[in-house]
Simulated scan of single mutants.
Amino acid sequence: MVVHLAGGRNIIVDAKVPLLAFLEATEARDERLRDERLAAHARHLRAHVDALGAKAYWRHLATSPEFVVLFVPAEAFLAPALEKDPTLLEHAAAKKVVIATPTTLIAMLRTVAHAWTQEALTSRTREIFELGRDLYTRLGTLGEHVDRLGRSLSRTVTDFNTAVGSLESRVLVPARRLAAMEVVENVLATPSPVETGVRALSATELAGRADGTPG
């Protein structure tokens, strides 16, 4: 079976554990036969671990960690096997197989789910940090553009007012003399200078970037 966890992750669980030898041991009346069947139970469990590890189920499911859970339905089934084969758990781990009973399975799933949730939060925090840095940089660039536009408008206003002054002093004076001599009928209108200046950037972040200093 596949257990679906938070963050789109999955844990593959195999529950086809061989229990025939264990059941035969529980029914045996002879101590020697019982001991022999428990040893067989340990061998069967180890062989199942080898077969399960060789299948490498995680390769077929990209969202699964590189291990598969071998589910043993009760502690009573696992304990005798470990008595006969004390290295069974280490052997299983080397094969990327985790042997779990109901208690350990739930604890393991909760731990893995929590770890992935924390990883997702860390990833989201890192993404927000990168977006914030990118936004701050873009604001600085926009401030540079606005500052250049403001300086360009200021130069335009200055040039316009200079042209108005030249028009008044160099062109309109003799033109008005013509009007005073009644050579022409209409009086020329006098253009007004632009009095309102361009507002400078006041935000230190934007003004700093516009001046070439770090924002």
Rank of each mutant, 00 (worst) to 15 (best):
V171Q: 09
A21L: 05
K16E: 06
K84G: 06
R124N: 02
R209D: 01
F77K: 09
A74R: 08
E119Q: 14
T141W: 08
A200L: 14
L178R: 10
T125F: 09
F67N: 02
G132Y: 03
A81T: 11
R126C: 04
V2M: 05
R124G: 00
H114A: 15
A76H: 08
E185N: 12
G165N: 15
T111G: 15
E195A: 04
L131N: 10
V194M: 09
T190P: 02
A207P: 03
I12H: 03
G132W: 03
G132S: 12
T190V: 11
V184E: 07
D134E: 10
R126M: 09
G215Y: 12
R32N: 06
S123C: 04
A94T: 05
H41S: 05
R209S: 07
V184P: 07
R151T: 08
E83F: 08
A115K: 08
A40V: 07
V112Y: 15
L52R: 06
L45V: 06
D14S: 05
V194Q: 10
A15G: 00
K16G: 06
L135Q: 14
R199Q: 12
E185R: 14
V2Y: 04
A25C: 03
A100G: 04
R29T: 11
E83W: 08
V171R: 07
E119K: 11
A180L: 10
P102C: 09
R209I: 01
G212T: 01
A25Y: 02
A74P: 01
V97F: 09
V184N: 07
E205N: 10
A6F: 09
A21W: 03
H60F: 13
L105P: 02
A189T: 13
F160T: 15
A39T: 12
R59H: 12
S169N: 15
L5A: 04
R110M: 02
L82W: 08
S202I: 14
F129H: 09
S192R: 15
E24K: 11
S123Q: 13
E130C: 03
K16D: 07
L52M: 09
E127F: 11
K96P: 00
E144P: 05
D14F: 01
I128M: 14
G150C: 07
R138L: 15
I12D: 02
F71E: 01
F22C: 01
A163D: 05
A94I: 04
V68G: 00
A15H: 00
T101P: 03
A6C: 06
R124C: 00
A81H: 09
L23Y: 12
M181S: 12
A74H: 11
M181E: 15
V68D: 00
L167G: 09
D50Q: 06
V98L: 14
K16C: 05
R110F: 00
V183P: 03
L20Q: 13
D35W: 03
G215D: 12
A175E: 01
A189E: 14
D30R: 04
L19E: 13
A93G: 08
V184I: 15
Q118E: 15
L38S: 01
L61H: 07
N161A: 01
V194A: 08
L45P: 06
A62R: 12
L167A: 06
T158M: 07
V97G: 06
A74S: 10
A107S: 12
M108A: 08
L201Y: 01
K96A: 04
H60Q: 14
R170Y: 10
D159H: 08
A163I: 03
H48D: 13
